[in-house]
Amino acid sequence: MMAPQMTAQPTDRSSAIPWVAPFAVFMAWLALGPSLAIPQPWESVARVAVLLAVLLAVSRDLIVSLRVRHVLPSVLIGLGVFVIWIAPDQLFSAYRSHWLFQNSVTGTISTSIPANELADPLVVSLRVFRAAILVPILEELFWRGFLPRWIVHTEWSKVPLGSYTTVAFVGTALLFASEHGPFWDVGLLCGLIYNGWMWKTRSLGDLVLVHAVTNAALAGFVLVTKQYAYWM
């Protein structure tokens, strides 16, 4: 009885690479990127190039297999999440300055692009491309494709996409919220909505579309209003 278990675990570990590696590289760059001291626009070029290379090298088959089955509802949900994301700060000017959102644990709000570099069209274009195209793919592979199934069972590849358990559903939403620092509250709502749509559709392609619409709408809002705090 031990032999099947011994062979199943390495298989699951290796098969997790396409689901996890792009997100891991993304998070590593966020953490270590500033210490590299690469000047703009080369930092933006390098970041997009690295993320794109990792996605194509290790996750290409997953990306090709993505299918959108509910286009209009997914677009509308994506726009709805965008509204949720900006609404508190637009309705209440001092909302985000409360200690619940900016503190030693969640951090403080600061844009990831210095003001003088926001005038560079290439830097801004690459930021929009990363937010609207690359991030939805690499985050959804991890947050909705891998992690909930791994929480359900360590032999996660045997767990169908969109499977529901309370721990997986709530746990991934909480972790997703923690990724967004001072915006954890809207990040939590976003995570719950995305998880619910994943459970409803069982379609990772639809989640990528929802996420892409949210991020694209937010990017457009930032560029029009110059509220760069949303680009952390």
Score class of each variant (00 low, 15 high):
Leu141Arg: 06
Phe129His: 05
Leu207Val: 07
Leu161Arg: 12
Ala46Tyr: 00
Gln9Leu: 15
Thr7Met: 09
Trp199Arg: 14
Val54Ser: 03
Ala212Met: 11
Ser110Tyr: 14
Phe146Trp: 15
Ile77Arg: 04
Gly187Arg: 14
Phe101Trp: 15
Leu161Lys: 08
Ser163Gln: 14
Gln5Lys: 12
Trp29Pro: 08
Leu62Asn: 01
Ala229His: 14
Ser163Leu: 09
Val58Ala: 00
Leu204Thr: 01
Val128Asp: 01
Phe129Met: 05
Gly162Met: 11
Ala94Arg: 09
Val124Ala: 02
Tyr95Gly: 03
His211Lys: 06
Val83Trp: 10
Trp184Ile: 10
Leu56Glu: 02
Leu174Trp: 07
Arg130Glu: 06
Pro73Val: 05
Asp89Met: 13
Val20Tyr: 03
Phe142Lys: 05
Leu79Ile: 12
Val213Cys: 09
Thr165Glu: 12
Pro34Cys: 14
Met27Cys: 09
Glu139Val: 01
Ser163Met: 08
Arg60Gly: 00
Glu155Asn: 10
Ile17Met: 11
Val208His: 05
Gly33Ile: 12
Ile193Thr: 06
Tyr228Phe: 15
Tyr228Leu: 15
Ser15Met: 13
Gly187Glu: 01
Ile137Asp: 07
Leu91Pro: 04
Phe92His: 04
Pro121His: 02
Ala87Asp: 06
His70Leu: 11
Gly33Met: 14
Arg130Gly: 05
Ile63Glu: 00
Thr154Leu: 15
Ala57Gly: 05
Ala53Ile: 05
Ile63His: 00
Met27Trp: 04
Glu155Phe: 13
Gly196Ala: 08
Val25Trp: 11
Phe129Ser: 07
Val25Leu: 08
Met2Ser: 07
Ile151Ala: 09
Val81Cys: 04
Ala37Lys: 15
Leu174His: 00
Ser93Gly: 06
Pro136Asp: 15
Ser125Met: 04
Phe23Tyr: 13
Val152Lys: 03
Gln9Cys: 08
Leu51Asn: 10
Ala119Thr: 11
Ile193Trp: 07
Met1Gly: 08
Leu189Thr: 00
